[in-house]
Nucleic acid binder design. Structure first.
Lengths: 171, 171
DNA sequence: CTAACATGGTCAAGCGCTCAACTATTCCGG
DNA sequence: CCGGAATAGTTGAGCGCTTGACCATGTTAG
């Protein structure tokens, strides 16, 4: 316990925190809405498709997929079930571990991702990068890295999303 | 349409975007979890209580409350219903507009907020301000302001959350 | 005055998420 | 071997949110 009572935020900190909350709501709201309305998928699903697309064989064990997208096994399980209903992902039994399931991106899934990527990237640009200077972008990267490192120290090297995994567009 | 094809993210931008997504997930996840597990309320509800607490009379029309917390009428309506079940908020008919409802923070609600604030602020500190330099904090504020301004140009002056509305702790 | 529209707020359906079981397999120590 | 732990993944209940329909009241124009 801290004997000096709560360490309240300074005026600057509070302003920064409130602005940050508002900005995130704005930004992620816009990104989510674009993806949902124009591509018919939530951002989480987009991320899963990206993760799969970045992999040789475009497939991943459920656990690895969960880890790669920094989400729980449960979430991925539910999400893959929905994606499978749409025909974007296929579940395959793992040959080496009979408990395992492998999620595999289908051709349709890849097509959906390729179709979604340009609009999504454009939205991220509009909402984020177009309004920041290059310095601010690197500041943001540094800030993000610091937050990330403070949270789970293990995943310092990891990242979260993928917009244009080099080979996604068209191909 | 842009005739030059999608403006893909540069390597720096992509790294920044991924890091930023991860950081937000980490940060908001931690904040949400702390509030949920230790205080038994989601961050959204905390925000509503704060908004009410900051108001003379500790009450607000539903619409104003929605606007103040940057959320939809529907969300606020549902949220206030839950808060009312817990006895933290009371609904009162508006005397001047018979369509109107006024959400009023109860003594219990104020107590709950006062009890929750220190832990919440502490968490925000740990996850955010403790890991940033003062320069980074001001960078973050500037970045947030830019994003906010780009989004809804009208709410440039608005903010999102309140940690310690000056008079909240203890009273 | 009244018809038409705008505003305030609620509500039900559907979605994605979390949490906590639960099943099935694999691993490991005796 | 065998029996207990760890691991992989699924499932169902419950929660908060969004959307869109809905009703009631207020406002405005003809």
């Amino acid at each position: 316990m801290n004997t000096s009572g709560p360490r309240w935020l300074t005026a600057e900190e509070q302003a920064a925190w409130r602005a940050f909350l508002g900005a995130c709501q704005e930004l992620f709201g816009a990104v989510e809405a674009q993806l949902q309305h124009e591509e018919g998928m939530p951002h989480t699903y987009y991320e899963i498709l990206v993760r799969l697309s970045e992999t040789p064989g475009r497939s991943l064990r459920m656990s690895q997929l969960a880890e790669a997208s920094a989400s729980s096994k449960s979430r991925v399980s539910h999400a893959v079930a929905r994606l499978e209903e749409r025909g974007w992902v296929r579940r395959v039994d793992c040959p080496t571990d009979r408990r395992g399931q492998i999620a595999e991106l289908t051709a349709d899934g890849y097509a959906a991702l390729s179709a979604a990527a340009p609009g999504h990237v454009e939205q991220v640009r509009r909402s984020l990068f177009d309004v920041l200077t290059p310095e601010q972008v690197s500041h943001l990267a540094a800030i993000s890295a610091a937050i990330l490192a403070a949270g789970d120290p293990k995943r310092r090297a990891e990242c979260e999303d993928a917009e244009a995994p080099a080979d996604v567009p068209v191909d």
